[in-house]
Amino acid sequence: MTSDRRTLLADAALAVLADEGIRGLTHRAVDREAALPPGTTSAYFRTRAALLTGLVTRLVHLDQEELHTMAERLPPFRTPEELVDGMALLTRRRLTGEGRRRSLARYACAVESVRDPELREILVPRENAAREAVRLFLADQGVRDVEDRAHTLLTCVDGLVFDRLVSGGDVPREALEGLVAAALRQHLPGSPPTVRRW
């Protein structure tokens, strides 16, 4: 029961954060969102830091679950067009419905994590089937620095989602095609190697 109640409260906290922003995330607001008596949230998450940690842990769990499900349903990427299709599906999910709310909460938490090493550690990109599918595709295409290229590609897709959350609209397919083409591009002889700066 304790685990179920903590999950319910973490989900309510996600909703509050998505709807009201970081300043609106209070124990009382979570109690209201969860339709529970005042003081319930503080009984399970004593401090605001504990509430944020619980929220972020739940967010990462939901994200990983979604990515795993997507990877199971999609066939292995064999062509650049198939990889673009997969990324287009992911960006649509991140920009609509419950996915949009989670994206809003994720970026709010990312900003908070700048000052909170514990949150930052929880938010570090995790291994999952979708990330591995991108790496396998790049390796099959003969890309040498697979790890860096996959990281850069997925980080850029994340940036496009953030941009569309702020400005509205869908991520243009042409933008995703450009990112995939860049990830597949080989270094010209004599050109400097890719340097990862994050």
Rank of each mutant, 00 (worst) to 15 (best):
R32P: 10
T69I: 13
A10V: 08
V180T: 02
R58L: 03
E65H: 09
S191Y: 08
P38K: 13
L55C: 12
L89K: 07
C109R: 10
T57W: 04
E81I: 11
A110P: 06
A29N: 02
V124C: 09
A175E: 14
L59H: 09
R185V: 13
Q141S: 07
R32W: 07
V166T: 09
T26S: 02
D170Q: 10
R23A: 13
E121R: 14
T194R: 14
D158K: 02
R185Y: 13
P125K: 01
G168H: 06
D19I: 06
F45K: 07
E33H: 10
P76D: 11
A88V: 12
V180A: 04
V56Q: 03
T194S: 14
R78V: 15
A50R: 08
E20C: 13
L14W: 03
L74P: 11
R196Y: 04
A175K: 06
A133D: 12
A35E: 09
R48K: 12
D145I: 00
A130P: 08
R106V: 09
A35W: 11
C109E: 12
A35G: 10
R115Y: 15
A49L: 13
L188W: 12
D19M: 08
C156P: 02
R106T: 10
L179N: 02
V166F: 04
E112F: 10
P75V: 05
L62S: 05
F77D: 14
T91A: 03
L160V: 01
S103L: 02
R185Q: 15
L52V: 08
L153W: 02
F162R: 08
S113Y: 08
D31V: 06
L52N: 05
V195G: 11
P125L: 00
L104S: 03
E81C: 06
M1K: 13
S113A: 15
L74T: 13
A34W: 05
E66V: 14
L95E: 01
E174H: 09
Q186F: 12
P76A: 09
A139D: 06
R73C: 13
G54Q: 03
L136G: 12
P193E: 04
R58T: 05
G178Q: 00
E112R: 13
E72Y: 08
P80M: 03
V111Y: 02
R196S: 07
A88R: 15
L165N: 00
L160G: 02
T96M: 01
L90Y: 10
G54Y: 00
R73V: 15
L90R: 11
P193W: 00
A108D: 06
E132T: 13
R106C: 05
D19S: 11
R131Y: 15
R115C: 15
T26D: 00
